[in-house]
Amino acid sequence: MQVQDYAELSTTRANPHIDPALHIWGWEVPVYLFLGGLVAGLLVLNAYTVLTRRERELPAAARVFPVLGVPLLAVGLGALFLDLEYKLHVFRFYTTFQLSSPMSWGSWILLVVFATGGLAGLSAYVKSGWPLATFVRGLPFVGALERLADRHARGLAAANALLGVALGIYTGILLSGFAARPLWNTGLLGPLFLVSGLSTGAALGALLTRDSGERHTLLRLDLWLMLGEVVLLGLWLLGLLTGGEAARASSGLVLGGPYAAAFWTLVVAVGLAVPILLEVMALRGRWRQTLVAPALVLVGGLSLRFVLVYAGQHLGY
């Protein structure tokens, strides 16, 4: 479908997944973008805890977040792998670096995140007392890697903070780098996906922690992150509405068109408005703090990626 002043365009082209509207990326890509953002959030919050020496105050952020990071990222990459049409050639991402391709940047960022996030995760895991932790500690090289991680704990945290931010931004830039798809074509998707990733990371932490003080801290942080996300979503829509013809037409996809119902209910109401309201009421002591808000934040974060990935393919220019 194209935005042009055609009375009627007919074409003999009927390529699968291209016509009548582009639909080359299915559920795999939004699931990967969601998990990538979530892991970015977990890594950044863990690094913040280590760098500000608040491990006691934020026990899950210090010890659980890094252990979850790499496995969740691996699940996300598994989804991305399923999306590849030529799976045997997956190694081709790592036989080159293409400066102008966001996806090439992302492939290499992911590799480094696996190394630094994995090192922090391994060190936290072998100390956790969880199943198999003692066994893993006994494996060759694990002791040496743990000592390496512990000796450079702050340096590793700084690296994970930077790489987490890079990963979070990259999940947005992956979409925004296409001038051909006006709904995505703004750098604002970088910070939007980063803030949303941090928000889902904090929400998952609030769901997992057994420490009520930490839960409170994470939920309060999440409230600020959600408010930031509202601002960025608003700026994104404003940019589309004040843009050229193609941008304005594509804003209609989420404001009143085929993806409007999902956008307004799942992303705006369920993912932002309701959890913000619940958290504000909890902060003012008018409502008990429950785990409803962070659960909704996770639903909202996943929905945001689904709506954007699906809607963005719908209109060219």
Partner: peptide, 18 residues
């Protein structure tokens, strides 16, 4: 080619296919 489809998304003419 890995079939990642970044090029398909990038083409304003929708000239590519899998």
């Amino acid at each position: 080619c890995t079939g990642c489809k970044a090029c398909v998304a990038s083409c304003p003419y929708d000239a590519r296919y899998v």
